[in-house]
């Protein structure tokens, strides 16, 4: 069903009554992992920041990058769905996200941004 193929542009512009506290951006185009899961880079940066603040044990750069090294644009959605099925979820500002998508956002932040959180 069409509605089952919801793109995960869940941090897109939504200035509705202040309901979203996570920041908003427009979904990016182009081929990338974030595009595959429909999260724009600005949103990803803020998800990543919130995620690392909530889960400081995930901050280790090498481990973080290793954890998402096997993820590619072809399997990312499957991995995310498997996360949900297995209960591998994280809570970021109340949003229940898969561990994989949260780590992808953190990994996509860039070293500089990560250092800001935990230099």
């Amino acid at each position: 069903m069409e509605h089952c193929n919801a793109r995960r542009n869940f941090l897109r512009t939504a200035g509705t009554a202040g309901l979203l506290t996570l920041p908003i951006g427009r979904a990016i185009s182009g081929v990338s992992l974030l595009a595959a899961i429909d999260i724009d880079p600005e949103a990803a940066r803020i998800i990543g920041r919130s995620f690392l603040e909530a889960y400081p044990e995930e901050w280790n750069t090498r481990r973080l990058l290793t954890s998402v090294a096997h993820v590619d644009a072809f399997n990312v959605n499957v991995l995310i769905q498997r996360d949900f099925a297995a209960g591998r979820t994280v809570s970021v500002d109340g949003w229940v996200l898969s561990q994989t998508e949260a780590r992808l956002c953190a990994a996509a932040m860039g070293r500089g941004h990560r250092r800001e959180i935990n230099p």
């Binding site: 919801a6 995310i80 099925a85």
Partner: peptide, 8 residues
Amino acid sequence: GKANFGRV
């Protein structure tokens, strides 16, 4: 999440 139906 498992059904890829939005986020909660």
